[in-house]
Design a protein around this nucleic acid. Structure first.
Length: 510
RNA sequence: CGGGGAGUGGCGCAGCCUGGUAGCGCGUCUGCUUUGGGAGCAGAGGGUCGCAGGUUCGAAUCCUGUCUCCCCGACCA
């Protein structure tokens, strides 16, 4: 028996097309008509709002306060940090005028309204926030300064993909200043751990946290750390970064203070962020051929009740029965919050509505008809296990009070199962027995979804590193990161034959 | 930004080569019949064919420009 899937294309057939189909069929986002910019629809934005709410809590618990800085940054602010501007110069949107006028019946930019100094639409806010820090910071007593902002940023990307790389995207950016390197490094690693736990908790998305190699560092940073997630096609997705900026930005922007001895010292700063890209990671970690699966913690609605409305007078009693169940459900809580339950009263037939919620990935769907109501029952469908062994929909009928009683634990269980399934996939797809370039090439050429490979290396720098990067580039591979505490397994560097000092992950990446 | 493909009712597409003013499937609406479950039959509504110029008596169809999307590459969260 061939199982009919809700999506027009499967992951196996065409992963890229599947990804786009999920976004469209689950009503996550759509084309906007503006190059590289997307419209986030309620279900997609709702997932982002959940991410925001939960992560914001963590950011505050780790001692940070939210602020808001301007969208526009004077061009001159960028000139101060050479590496930083080099890294972003090619992808900046610039505002040069402030007025339009009618000319020959057409609306055109008024050449007379040229700005004295062009304004860059922020690609990230180090320069703007650093300038503020230099004013805020006078004494060692002012440290540490720890702020965060939720904002949109613009990077003029050549090639865009919904959620993964859009010209405009939403994110949070944390910025801190500290008295010394040790404090700043501790902050950088605290945030890395926070991101790791957040991805593996609410997103149920296993990641590898570690340090980026020199060539992948944030422009202007001394050290960059990332969390890397594995998508179902084996590619890596950088899902969050935390940077130790040393005193580079402090020097460039004069972020300094008088220490306990009255001497002037430059602060050590950090910056870190995660973006709407995380939603893309959730799609490619948890989606299947029937659409998205949203982990219960970040699902805008955890339980969706689809009443079997018949457009008859009996509908009213059925809706009352559904409302009773909903009231009981939102009275209980999971993950420390009240359950989020929607009764889908929209017009339309129950079947298509049910499949709509399957494609959107609501964790639990309750289908409730007249017979259920009469028998005090509900019919439950779990998104994480839609089908039984015969390939039929695995509906389960039970007493409504029984369902209400077990719903919190069930959501908890679904969250855990989703993480475990993804973790198993990640673990199974990291190879660490590749010892030569030829084997590496054979591995990545020989498999559609090859996953990652871990190798020892000598942590080369400068030209030696460039050579390694070039070799990898020929195989379309990148160095993802050096996982935390990853001592080398052997003694020799995979690339140079020199002495190995640590282990790194190689992968194709988004 | 280089190479390739594409933009036609809400969605998916045909028509374009060989110009004559638009068609199919799904969805939508109406009616009837059904219905523990992504229903059947009959009928109806809906598009200045991405946008702007040009050629022509006449352009979805030919030409030029431009915008947007998809794939490959370079770049990147």
């Amino acid at each position: 028996m061939t199982k009919k899937n809700a999506l027009p294309v499967t992951r196996q057939e065409d992963f890229a097309a599947w990804y786009q189909a999920v976004i469209q069929e689950a009503d996550l986002a759509e084309e906007s008509g503006v190059r590289g910019c997307m419209i986030m629809r309620p279900w997609g934005y709702g997932i982002w709002e959940r991410i925001q709410m939960l992560l914001d809590r963590q950011i505050k618990e780790t001692g940070h306060e939210n602020c808001y800085f301007p969208l526009f940054i004077p061009l001159s602010y960028f000139a101060k940090e050479a590496e930083h501007v080099d890294g972003f110069a090619k992808e900046m949107a610039v505002v040069t005028h402030h007025r339009l006028k009618m000319h020959d019946g057409a609306l055109v930019v008024d050449p007379e309204a040229k700005l004295e100094e062009p304004l860059v639409i922020r690609p990230t806010s180090e320069t703007m926030i650093g300038t503020a820090f230099s004013r805020w910071l006078q004494s060692w007593r002012d440290l540490p300064i720890m702020v965060n902002q939720w904002a949109n940023v613009v990077r003029w990307e050549m090639r865009t993909r919904m959620f993964l790389r859009t010209s405009e995207f939403l994110w949070q950016e944390g910025h801190t200043a500290h008295e010394n390197e040790a404090d700043a490094m501790a902050e950088t690693l605290t945030i890395l751990a926070m991101y790791r736990d957040f991805a593996q908790g609410p997103l149920a998305m296993p990641v590898i946290a570690g340090e980026k190699p020199e060539n992948e560092r944030f422009p202007g940073a001394v050290a960059t750390y990332s969390i890397e997630a594995m998508m179902q096609d084996g590619k890596a997705l950088q899902a969050g970064t935390s940077h130790y900026l040393g005193q580079n930005f402090a020097h460039a922007q004069n972020i300094r203070f008088q220490d306990r001895e009255g001497q002037f010292q430059f602060a050590h700063t950090t910056s870190w962020g995660v973006s709407t890209r995380m939603v893309g990671g959730v799609i490619m970690t948890h989606g299947d051929d029937d659409g998205l699966k949203v982990p219960p913690q970040i699902a805008p609605h955890q339980i969706v009740i689809v009443p079997m409305l018949r457009e008859t007078p009996e509908d009213e009693a059925l809706l009352a029965y559904c409302a009773k169940i909903r009231t009981a459900l939102i009275d209980s809580s999971a993950f420390g919050e009240p359950l989020r339950v929607l009764i889908d009263k929209k017009a339309g037939k129950p079947g298509p509505k049910r499949w709509g919620w399957v494609k959107k990935g609501a964790p639990i769907i309750l289908e409730i008809g007249g017979r259920d109501a009469a028998g005090e029952q509900v019919t439950m469908l779990r998104r994480d296990s839609l089908y039984d062994e015969d390939g039929k929909l695995a509906n389960q009928a039970m007493h409504w009070e029984s369902f209400v009683g077990q719903a919190p634990a069930l959501l908890d269980q679904i969250q855990t199962l989703m993480f475990c399934a993804a973790k198993q996939r990640l673990d199974a797809q990291v190879r660490s027995d590749v010892t030569t370039m030829d084997e590496l090439k054979a591995h990545f050429d020989g498999s559609k979804y090859p996953g990652w490979v871990a190798v020892d290396w000598c942590r080369p720098t400068g030209e030696a590193l460039d050579k390694v990067v070039e070799q990898l580039k020929a195989l379309k591979l990148t160095i993802r990161n050096t996982p935390e505490n990853s001592a080398p397994a052997g003694e020799t560097c995979f690339f140079t034959g020199g002495a190995a000092v640590e282990r790194i992950l190689l992968a194709r990446a988004y």
